[in-house]
């Protein structure tokens, strides 16, 4: 499933004490994502990365431009159809109160998959991710943050979307859980052929995971290309500043 972003723009309005403020969150962004690739969107906080993902899942509407999914405008697609093809994992696990099983069944029930088939599917992915079935009956509040995020990813995977959007899913995790999630994402892409758009401000993660990347700074596309190339020989000064700035931070 190919994605093509065409002159995408997003202006947001914020009102405080009846004074409207306009801010250009994304400005005329165009790029392409190929089938079955892991594509990283990198940039500092507030560069518009999350907004870009939300536009793909149509949790927000763009103010200009379009996103094409296999040549068809997502703005002309029925929103439920689109969200079936494109799943999203948020920065926080965003699990629903209840058991792990209830969470996993949420999307399956919406797709009218019966209990038996749902259970088969859940077991298949649990064994695939090497997670013990015992976890199904556990209340989500008894899970660690790392386990919660893995369940949140699993909740999206079992719906078998063609594209998964990931918004810094490791931001609240410790290094060992982060590594677990990163290897899980690689596997999903390699074994299941799922296209993944991965948003991060951490260059190491982009390097480990992605084939190609887009550098986004202040809502502007600064650079797009093979991840390795961007890091080894950035074409733009802004990219160099960003990489250098981050290296200093480490």
């Amino acid at each position: 499933m190919k994605l093509s972003f065409q002159n995408l723009s997003k202006v947001k309005f914020t009102a405080k004490n009846h004074i409207f403020k306009e801010s250009q969150v994304l400005n005329d962004i165009s790029f392409k994502i190929e089938e079955k690739e892991i594509f990283a969107v990198i940039g500092p906080s507030g560069s518009g990365k999350t907004t870009l993902l939300r536009l793909v899942n149509r949790l927000e509407e763009p103010t200009g431009g379009d996103i094409l999914l296999d040549g068809k405008s997502i703005l002309k697609m029925e929103v439920f159809k689109l969200r079936r093809k494109i799943g999203m994992v948020f920065q926080v696990p965003a699990l629903f109160l209840g058991t792990v099983e209830e969470n996993l069944f949420y999307g399956l029930t919406l797709r009218k998959i019966n209990r038996e088939d749902g259970q088969i599917r859940i077991k298949k992915y649990l064994s695939y991710l090497e997670i013990d079935e015992e976890i199904l009956s556990r209340d989500i509040n008894t899970l660690s943050l790392g386990q919660q995020q893995r369940i949140s990813i699993l909740r999206t995977i079992i719906l078998e979307p063609e594209v998964i959007l990931m918004d810094e899913p490791t931001s609240s995790l410790d290094p060992s859980n982060t590594n677990l999630i990163l290897s899980l994402i690689k596997e999903l892409n390699q074994k299941l052929g799922i296209t993944i758009i991965y948003v991060t401000h951490l260059m190491e993660q982009a390097k480990i995971l992605s084939h190609r990347s887009l550098v986004l700074i202040n809502g502007e596309k600064v650079e797009e290309g093979e991840t390795e190339k961007i890091f080894s020989s950035p074409a733009k000064q802004e990219t160099r500043d960003f990489i250098f700035g981050k290296l200093v931070n480490f």
Binding site: G87, A94, F96, Y106
Partner: peptide
């Protein structure tokens, strides 16, 4: 909001 948006992205109305 995260739960609500997660539900929307999972296909809920």
């Amino acid at each position: 909001r995260y739960e609500i948006e997660a539900a929307l992205s999972l296909g809920a109305g």
